[in-house]
Design a binder for these strands. Sequence first.
DNA 1: TTAATTTGACCCAC
DNA 2: GTGGGTCAAATTAA
Length: 310
Amino acid sequence: MESACVYGQKTLINELSQGLQMAKQLKGNLNSPEARDIIQKILASYDNALLVLKSGESAGQREPNDFPASSLTESLITIASPQSVRSEFNQPFSNEHDPNVVSKKRKGSTVCEDQVKMCTDDGLEGSVDDGHSWRKYGQKDILGAKFPRSYYRCTYRKAEKCLATKQVQRTDANPTVFDITYKGKHTCNHHTRLAEPPLPEKHEINTTHHQQLSRPNPGEMLSNLRTNLTVNTSDFGATDPHSFSFPLEPFGIIEDYQQLHLPNDFDDELLQVYSPPFISPGTSDSNCYTDWDSSPSLNFTADLDRDFKF
DNA sequence: TTAATTTGACCCAC
DNA sequence: GTGGGTCAAATTAA
């Protein structure tokens, strides 16, 4: 069983590697700057996927079929459990979660909290959108961090007394990757497209169920990748150089979950709980993965109807 | 005109 | 005293 899973992961790595090589070949054949830019994004996406997979493999912390049913669609997303916040990029993020660092969190701020890691394709903080409307209320330089931390609160804080806040910080190692900490729960009714961000209590779902619902096997992932991951090369000249994407379709993601042969007793609530939260119309040109239990995971979402197929 | 962002100051925990 | 988090006035954008 386990060996089969390992085989599946190796296969996935091999296939991704092949795709990487193909993309490189394509890069050599296309001369337009736009095409090169787009292909560079393909390469970056593959690199990310390989990095994630290989890191998981080397760490040996997780079986290959432990990949959650997330989508590698627009952004690179990692969801860390509240107590185990650790960047796979090996850099500190929130001292609050480091047992070796004293927290200076204000008294009484016992709101629920959760963290995710997101990679935006354009590297813009504004691309980080989770379906909620946020208003920036502060920015601070953080000790030991290259980039300042931004503080956001719900736009409807006053109108609906919604106390949800989030902190967004660009990681040192990879400026296109953001560590995001959510604090508090949205009490407003202004979701634009998605369910709530993952909240701590939602991570407490029993492990068995968790694994059942979130572990597509690599073979299926690869199959989906082959079937659906396409790149339109027919209109390079007319396309915004930054518009290439593994398109992000929130409800497509839900469909992906369903494609993963989830158990029949998989209920809607849990489906929402494990739906990737960071999807927005404004950030539709990067890729994402979701990581449960601080382990790498990968899934390609793909309802692309492009011309080019790997 | 209104809403959002910026930024320095302030508050609080350590 | 230091550093993280928040406030609120000033500025900018829509």
